[in-house]
Design a protein around this nucleic acid. Structure first.
Lengths: 226, 226
DNA sequence: GCAGGATTCAAACAGCCGTTTGAAATGAAC
DNA sequence: GTTCATTTCAAACGGCTGTTTGAATCCTGC
């Protein structure tokens, strides 16, 4: 009935190893054999503890991604509490959204695993991962959409949602593979160098959020095409 | 010596099918057997015409992605020709960068294949794809970095490169899977509905580009941390 | 000490993967 | 019509995949 504490060692060892391998080679290319070898446990342990590879992915997801979303809502609540009425500062809202990923990385010793893991999860075509992301991200996105509406009231909310999704894409790309960034810019942009990338992204996105909406956009629903 | 015209039928059939399957399930999950089945050709044809799966990926890449980058530089040259001196309009530069992807999609009948293919290529962890992207994207990025510097001279170029990469990420995310967008926003944002997403992105990114840089950022190279 | 459930382990399962082979079919050149 | 290179085809190769099995352990409660 009560979970045996001994079991947790191999369980977390698998989770740690899976997290690292997922980040390194992506979800599809990560084989269970490679994960258990890194974790130093038996091959069958994965299916014993997690049922299947998908179960393992889900467990990794729940251990790392879910808390970040919770933290996002927490920080957003703090921002709203600090500004009980009137407009919210856009930068603060964006920081509440973007910072938890950076935070998680700093709190954890495991270098770059977490950041790249997020990139993989966003980019992976797997259906189950997509479902998990939707279920977790949906409410958070709605919540931040409303907060942004309070921060930039002159822009219609659907447009703000577009812009928030752009920001998510930029963040995911930032996290996916820092080496590409560094190489493409000949060493001038290195996302690994701490919070610099995050600060730049907040600046960029905040200005984007404040951009005036296209005339008549976001309210009507008329669209041409098939 | 001269390429037999008859060969091209199966060759392009394979390319078309591969493009579609890559877009649907990603590069890693796309099996050669699935591709040849869709193309209606023999299994060994892939290795006969392209040498290996990597060769096929490269061929798909060269047929679709490379022309888009060429078109980008072409449009940018047109923008620069229209403004031989003085500041370039940021929106025009961004449109030169972002529009070719949309254009390629519209010119080609193949619905959503191309858009998702780009998302896959950006997000795929494969090393060879990464190398191809770097080789193709590097010069284009440098070129647009300089153009943006002419458009927004008050922002240092490294910062503009950061922002251009953010824009790339947003675009990639926009193209990756439109269904996620639509689901997450409860149907309020549908990237498939034509140029709306592109126009919104240009607006967003243009405002982000014009944001004042952080004090003293982009020039010095001092950074704390390990 | 002894039961009994929880956990580990080595070994094997079927299935799909990219790739190779060698023969059959095709089509142009003479 | 024969020759020759190009292209197609069915079949198999070794290897890696996720998963299952059943026995061997370990640990707890009595």
């Amino acid at each position: 009935m009560s979970p045996a504490p001994a079991a947790h060692d191999t369980k977390t060892a698998i989770l740690d190893a899976a997290e690292a391998v997922f980040a390194e080679v992506g979800l599809a290319r990560a084989s269970i054999r490679r994960i258990v070898q890194r974790a130093g446990v038996n091959l069958a342990a994965v299916h014993y503890h997690f049922g299947s590879k998908e179960g393992l992915i889900e467990a990794v997801f729940n251990r790392r991604v879910a808390p970040v979303n919770a933290r996002r809502l927490e920080l957003l609540a703090a921002v709203e509490a600090a500004h009980p009425e009137g407009a919210l500062p856009v930068e603060a809202v964006l920081e509440a959204f973007l910072r938890p990923m950076q935070e998680a990385r700093e709190a954890d010793g495991r270098a770059d695993h977490l950041r790249r893991l997020y990139g993989r999860l966003v980019g992976e075509p797997s259906e189950s991962v997509g479902r998990m992301m939707s279920r977790q991200f949906g409410p958070v996105l709605q919540r931040f959409g409303k907060a942004l509406k309070r921060a930039v009231p002159e822009v219609p909310e659907p447009v703000l949602l577009w812009r928030l999704l752009f920001t998510v894409g930029a963040a995911a790309h930032l996290m996916l593979d820092p080496l590409v960034f560094k190489k493409l810019t000949r060493g001038r942009c290195d996302p690994r160098a701490g919070a610099e990338g995050l600060a730049e992204l907040i600046r960029f996105a905040a200005a984007g959020m404040r951009a005036p909406a296209a005339a008549g956009a976001g309210e009507g629903d008329q669209e041409e095409g098939s």
